[in-house]
Each structure stands twice: as structure tokens, then as C-alpha cells.
Amino acid sequence: MTERPPKILVTKIGFDGHDRGSRIVAAYLRDAGMDVVYTGPWQQIPAVVKLALEEDIDVLGISSLATDHLLVPKLIEALREAGLGHIPVVVGGIVPPEEEPALRAAGVAAIFHPGASREEIVAEVGRLARLARAAVEGDV
């Protein structure tokens, strides 16, 4: 048995199209030894769910520079309906402080604001991935 590196989906939902941040984060995670499934912008929620399922990912990362984070609660609900409630969802980008509680309440596992360091992102995503993998292996 070989260990599989953490497998992370980095994607964008909604309308925004800035990808400087998501490209940098993808490179960070790869350089930390993770496998990163990377998509273009404007993914529909059902498509993200299908992708998460097919790729058997450990963590789902949403990059949001405009207001796309407002769709994340819907995404988490859709993941749960598809039996993928174990996948932690993290959000990176611009999230106004007063909208954080609603995202946390919806189940967002971590929020990375502008200025979050490489170290912080890699450590937290890695930790969440290990937890998620352990949960799956205990399952089925």
C-alpha cells in the first residue's frame, strides 16, 4: 500500500474570473507535495460536485475575489446531498468580516484572507486533508 498525497480541488464558482491567487495557491500546494486538481472559473455547483466525487478529493478549495463566496453554502448543501459531506470546504480570497459567521455556520472549514502565508495555507489544508482521508477510510 502506498500513501496517496492529499488531493485538493482548487476551483471557482460564480462569476468572478481573477485567477492570480488560485494559481499561486495551487503552486504552493503542489510544492508541498499535494496533488491539485485545478479548474477554470465559472464552474456550476453540480459540476463541482461531480468532479469532487469522480476525483475522490480530500479538500475542496474555492477562490473568491468578488462575491462568489455567497454561493458556498449552496455548494456545501449540494456536496452533502451527494454523500460528500465529509469533504472539508475552504475559501480563499476576499470575504468581508461580517459574512464570515454565515460561512462558518454553513460548514466552511477555513477561510484564508489576503495576506495568509504559504505556511498557514499548506499546514491547514494538509491537516484537513488527513482528517478527511481518515474519515473515509474508517467508512465503507
Binding site: 460564480g14 462569476f15 468572478d16 462575491t67 454561493l71
Partner: peptide
């Protein structure tokens, strides 16, 4: 609105995102 940027009318989009930007 970002929905306009993407080329959609308001009746084609998630209401959460309308008029936010």
C-alpha cells in the same frame, strides 16, 4: 453587476450574487 459581465440577465442567475458588485 458581475452577472452582466458574464453575459446573463438577472432571471438566469443565482439571486445571491445579483447587484453585489
Amino acid at each position: 453587476c458581475n452577472s452582466v459581465y458574464r453575459g446573463y440577465d438577472v432571471d438566469e442567475c443565482p439571486i445571491e450574487l445579483l447587484g453585489t458588485c
